[in-house]
Design a protein around this nucleic acid. Sequence first.
DNA 1: CAGTGAGCGAGCTTCCGCTTGACTT
Length: 671
Amino acid sequence: MDLIIVESPTKAKTIQKFLGNGFKIKSSFGHVRDLPKSELGVDVDKNFQPKYVIPTKARKVVSELKKESAKAENVILATDEDREGESIAWHLAEALKLKNPERIVFHEITKGAIDDALKEPRKIDMNLVNAQQARRVLDRIVGYKLSPFLWKKVMKGLSAGRVQSVAVRLVVEREREIEKFIPQEYWQIEALLKKNEDEFSAFLSKKDGKPIEKLEINNEKEAKKILEQLNKASYIVDSVEKKQQNKNPLPPFTTSTLQQSAWQKFKFPAKVTMQTAQKLYEEGHITYHRTDSLNLSEVSLAAAEKFIEKSFGKKYTEGIKRYKAKKNAQEAHEAIRPTFADRTPESLGKIDSRQLKLYTLIWQRFIASQMAKAVFDAVAADITANNYTFRANGQVLKFDGFLRVYQMKFEENELPSLQKGDDLALIDVKPSQHFTEPPARYNEATLIKALEKDGIGRPSTYAPTLATIQERNYVSKNDQKRFIPTETGIVVNDMLVQNFPEVVDIQFTANMEEELDKVAEGKDDWEKTCKDFYVPFSKNLKEKYEVVKKENMDKETDKKCPKCGSPLVERMGRFGRFYACSAFPECKHTESLQAEKIDVPCPKCKEGNMVSKKTKRGKIFYGCDKFPKCDFALWDKPLNEFCQKCSSILIETKKKEVKCSNKECDFTKLQ
DNA sequence: CAGTGAGCGAGCTTCCGCTTGACTT
């Protein structure tokens, strides 16, 4: 009997079904060895020799695999075909002390792909393994050298890393763009016109045949001046251009685009999307959900085409469509797709509502990706009025194509049939005032998109990265669930950007990937790659330890200490800012500051007021501002109203339901 | 559901990427 080891237990089960009793399939649950958590674990003076240990969590798996491999005739390592997968294979070989492991790869879980792979075993590719070692060691050095620097210069418990620090930087820089943004006024002029009985509107686009720039009409006076010349003008159709506009379907989902769409459509946080996808994957409804690939198995493509033809007719197919992933994708898996094209969302039966929503999205996107393009009839008409030109655009859907399955927003606007030389009746000319708008703050979807664009982070780390930068209190979410940097985030970011610009550069990852490619191709040593980074980095780090002063996060205030009369200062603590007496340590008076008042008296002590605060993990809760004297606290927002049944205070839940705070009481207020 | 900071100096914090369950609260 041969033993096959893969990474995911669900994958193991599926493969076991395909291969039957001749093989035993086990999973490694990801990496089985890593650098130790408690120390650097890299001997920088001895060619970056890494010290690998088996984390306690992986011990059980490793001993189980050891037992199985001893019984097996051959051990076949079938981890993913990418840098990390090759590395896992090597670590398995080392940890299990395998003599002659066979290495096989496949990028889709189909019987054919697995049979083919088994016919072509190879050796572990040490170049690829070494590229992974370089990646791992570089990330460890950056993280474990910069974090302690921050502990010393700013505050304990902080962290820095190749991915998280760039994520924070994006948020900080966006906030600065918004701060310095000055809105510019501009005016648009719309003409309401009529041909026969059909009304339509056109926008002013040119003067003397030259396009009017967006900010050209920048005040009301200018707009009025133009208006005067337009009121009495005659409106003649100058040209009519008709054409067909095609809209192609979107490619199937990767992790990143799935997280973005699930946010846009359902407001699922990335973490919820991944948890929900995990369940769909485990239940066999979808393919693997951590992927950057757009590949689709031949079987699935054929099934989709058949399904589309049967359900919507032949004109909804255009043959098989293949999509290419972006550069630097590792493509160890397929795109995220339903396991069976004809398993419609309706056919799933009883299923958790979030799972149903996500499955529907994945299914529609996959089916649509194989459907015909949508076709619009578009008309663009130029209409002259004296020396001015107006533009009227019309767009009518002619054939819905993939839009039949995957809805996307588009506007339809029908124009009357216009001919060159038509004399149009003017109903009204309306000027409208507008202002340019600052760029939007990032939300989970747009931040993930921005990171992915520059290759920063991987499918398995987008969601955890968002969690980390919030846990460290570098960024928080506002009411619209958009990221804003905290003071800590700004201070840490500025310190890193100023002193370690190359590490927190958006391009750092891309440059690193180029170096890693050379290692993977056998053109460079991985140790040299580490050294090229480490030597200048450590020299700079040593200098900065001496030059950079400890950040003083204190802020002076006008307030006086109620106990001793000394001035109070705003100080940064583990839970954000607070007021502290400047006579500390003689006087230990403190007051809370980060708390936000919500104008509801505390129902327990009647003296304090309820304030909103955050836990260590950044979760919002509501507590009495007389804490620790009064320990009243709630998860949901209290209202200044009381329960008719038990007279406990009423709360407003996250779903905007008004309920009684007493868990024994079932009172709910209908709105 | 949560009280912070200084300094003594011990012991600890921290990275990214690959995988899921096993813990109480």
